[in-house]
Every structure is written in structure tokens, then in C-alpha cells.
Amino acid sequence: MGIGKKLQNIGHIAEGKSKESTGKAVGNESLEMKGKAEKIKGMVKHAAEKAKDALKH
């Protein structure tokens, strides 16, 4: 996995976690759901990159 893609995916995960936490703290369900979606998006992309790398080797 390229370092750029890895950092981008980790960034999505971190940003999603922060949005989710903020949404919970202020009682904003919409922000909480957007955060969960972004976190999951980052996790799925990260897993896909890892699988792609495993097939290369």
C-alpha cells in the first residue's frame, strides 16, 4: 500500500471518529451518522488496500 493512500485512509478514519464523537457530545444525530459513515469508508478502503497488497506478494 502506498504511504499516501494509507495516510488518506487513516485520515478518513480519524476524521470520522472525531465527527462521531462531536455529534454524540452535542446531540447531533446527523453529524454522528456522517462520522460513522466516514469512519467506515476509511476502514473499508484501508482493508481493500491491504488485500490488494497481499495479492501482490
Rank of each mutant, 00 (worst) to 15 (best):
V26W: 01
K39V: 03
E49P: 00
L31H: 00
K41P: 01
G35P: 01
N28H: 03
L55Q: 10
L55T: 06
M43D: 09
K34Q: 14
K6S: 06
M1S: 04
E32P: 02
K17D: 02
E38R: 04
A47N: 08
K56D: 15
K19Q: 06
E38W: 01
G35K: 01
L31A: 06
G23W: 05
A54D: 10
H12A: 10
M33Y: 05
E38L: 11
M43K: 15
H12E: 15
E38I: 04
A54T: 11
V44A: 11
S30C: 02
S30M: 07
V26I: 15
K52H: 05
E20D: 05
K50P: 02
K41M: 07
K36M: 09
M1K: 00
I10M: 14
S21T: 09
D53P: 00
G27F: 00
G42S: 11
G23D: 03
A48D: 05
G2T: 06
N9T: 14
K41F: 13
K34L: 12
E49S: 10
A54Q: 14
G35L: 01
G16P: 00
K50F: 15
N9D: 08
I13L: 07
G42M: 13
G11W: 05
L31G: 01
V44Q: 07
I13Y: 08
L7P: 02
G42F: 12
E38V: 03
K39A: 15
V26A: 03
L31W: 03
I40H: 08
K34R: 09
D53C: 03
G23M: 04
K17M: 14
A47R: 13
M43A: 14
A51I: 06
G2S: 12
A48N: 08
T22S: 06
T22R: 08
A25Y: 00
G27M: 00
G11C: 03
Q8W: 15
K41E: 14
E29I: 06
G16T: 02
K6W: 05
G27A: 02
K39N: 12
I40A: 11
H12C: 08
A37N: 08
G35Q: 01
N9H: 14
A47S: 11
K6H: 08
M43S: 14
S18R: 05
V44C: 04
K39I: 04
I13R: 07
M33R: 07
G42E: 13
V26L: 04
K6M: 11
H12I: 09
G35S: 00
K41W: 08
A51D: 07
A54M: 15
